[in-house]
Nucleic acid binder design. Structure first.
Lengths: 337, 337
DNA sequence: ACCTTTCGTTGAAACCTTTCAATCCGAGGA
DNA sequence: TCCTCGGATTGAAAGGTTTCAACGAAAGGT
């Protein structure tokens, strides 16, 4: 492979100085049309491609954002990424996705690499929002925004959704529909989101004046379809008079699993059991019984995260913000008779 | 933000030349333990972070691979990405994901940017495998491997799966189960994959000695759950004696949609209709009726693609290879009464 | 005490782009 | 004809790392 041509080669071929070539690239208006044409022709002939590394070195930073995400298979994160992508595009930047796959070591590798690359900014949904890797990034001066997680201190910008409110909305909706015995399905409670949603559910339950012991918690080991099915089996195992008439699932995958389990057992939704999910993923509305779910403004989350990170990069007067978005309930057949 | 420190700063603080600092970084064994310790201390104190752009500039290429993918929401692609990620990791490289979202312009932007960045290699599932953007990349000397698509010429390495064989396997399985009236569900036929799977289905059908007109094609406008449901409605609309006893869907999302539609209408799977999907995504085995599906070696695809691109980058004697993997049938309840 | 190795360290050059002060040239005015 | 002004072009410097030939010093051999 012949080595790539540089501005110097272009300059030589066009018979101009390399400063002029650079001007053609960056301030074409300051170059006379005649020379500009000559230089452009030379670029064409040589197949010249700018060397981004050299540009970056000179500029001190790259023209790139990155989003380090937890789980590329979860539509939630890819929607967030899409929002960030749009914002980046609008600012003339590229977005690179890095998949940490829930592993702290991989996350750390990526973050270190991105800092070395001097990317303009990093969005991250961290494995552990308290981890010191995040502080290391900040110390090295790369703007970083935490996505869909929060931290106690205000050392970072963050964007998140009010999960407690989400839990509250779900339960208020069920109460309105007349349910007086409800199950919360979700876990493990090491996940902040799960805790918050349950907390919201409990408060709404209490405020409705319903007795504590009528809100059962069915713990799961994860937020997957398979876990939802197994939770469904446990639910069906309950004595009929103890069985709830509605379930609130900590995410849609659980809800879909539960739904499948019920239809396999010949039970009707919402007749025998009403179901509320969380996230409003695409499959939720396309399910056999369209699923009532709590929707989070996913794209908006990504968009605002990208805007915050850009502000931190460009604006010397930047102050960190912790944005909290409001979820909304989307009622569908799985709770509406 | 104080400007980042450079090797020069470290050298000054440690009282050594900057060549020595570089040695500590790259060939620590050639530096005496005493000076090495001093240099490392200095790095620590200053919070030194290598400048990757400068490294790249010097080295002529980066320490990064990229995968430009069509649809981040499709589990197929994220699994391919995971395979590539593993291979990259093994070679000490990072993998950046770029989401073209099926848009040629975005794909082009990313490719151009990656070439400018001088990434070591690019994997891409292109919107259009014949498009000239791919040739542009090659002309600029960046190794590129086409993933899950093929091209007539042998200008590139590619990895793909034998879709015709996949279609054949699906239909052979249905024939073995005694079905003599089958529907193929899928489209649009601008997608090469859809065409090949249908072609394989037709050949197997013919080889089994079954009459052409008993293999119905139900065209769809895409490969989504919603399309699957609508295809199901059309299928149910057929006169009973014309209705097939089995359906082969061009991918699993269609199959899941079909499955939902049937269970809504109170029809049994496989009793009233047997179903075969394609891709064996995670949801396939977790469906209400576990789905028979054609499995593609997704991670393997990504892994080999990454290996090929690295070979092209490192090995001067590299010759392009077009790998074709073999799919396999995974039989589950949706066809096994 | 002198020569040869070997090991550790050095300094300059190269990678490619961008920027900016300086220079050049031609046109227009006096 | 000379001067001035403006726009076009130039050349050098800077940015941070790596590499490599060259140098210095210490250790080993005679």
């Amino acid at each position: 492979m012949a080595r790539a041509h540089s501005v110097k080669d272009v300059a030589a071929r066009a018979g101009v100085s390399l400063g002029t070539v650079s001007n053609v690239l960056n301030r074409p208006d300051r170059v006379s049309p005649k020379t500009r044409a000559r230089v452009e022709q030379a670029m064409q002939d040589l197949g010249f491609v700018r060397n981004e590394s050299a540009r970056q070195l000179r500029a001190g930073h790259s023209r790139t954002l990155a989003y380090v995400l937890l789980d590329a298979r979860n539509p939630f994160f890819t929607d967030v990424a899409e929002g960030a992508e749009r914002a980046a595009e609008a600012a003339g930047l590229r977005l690179f996705l890095c998949h940490s796959d829930n592993r702290a070591s991989r996350e750390g590798d990526y973050l270190a690499h991105l800092v070395e690359q001097r990317v303009q900014g990093i969005l991250v949904t961290p494995v552990d929002p308290q981890a010191s890797v995040l502080d290391d990034v900040r110390r090295n001066g790369t703007p970083l925004v935490i996505v869909d997680r929060t931290r106690e201190d205000d050392q970072f910008c963050s964007v998140a959704v009010d999960d407690e409110l989400g839990g509250r909305l779900a339960v208020e909706h069920l109460v309105e529909q007349g349910h007086t015995r409800v199950a919360f399905i979700g876990g493990p409670d090491t996940i902040g989101q799960v805790r918050d949603r349950l907390e919201g559910a409990r408060r709404a339950w209490k405020e409705a004046g319903l007795p504590d012991d009528q809100l059962t918690v069915v713990p799961t080991d994860g937020l997957t379809v398979v876990e939802g099915r197994s939770a469904g089996e446990r639910l069906m195992g309950l004595a009929k008079r103890r069985r709830p008439s509605a379930a609130f699932c900590a995410n849609d995958l659980l809800a879909l699993g539960l739904l499948q389990q019920l239809s396999t057992s010949g039970l009707a939704v919402p007749g025998d059991l009403a179901i509320v999910g969380y996230d409003d993923i695409e499959y939720a509305s396309a399910a056999a019984v369209p699923l009532t779910s709590v929707r989070q403004p996913r794209q908006e989350l990504g968009r605002r995260a990208a805007e915050l990170v850009l502000d931190e990069a460009d604006n010397p007067a930047h102050v960190h913000e912790q944005l909290v978005f409001l979820p909304e309930l989307v009622a569908r057949r799985s709770t509406l008779g």
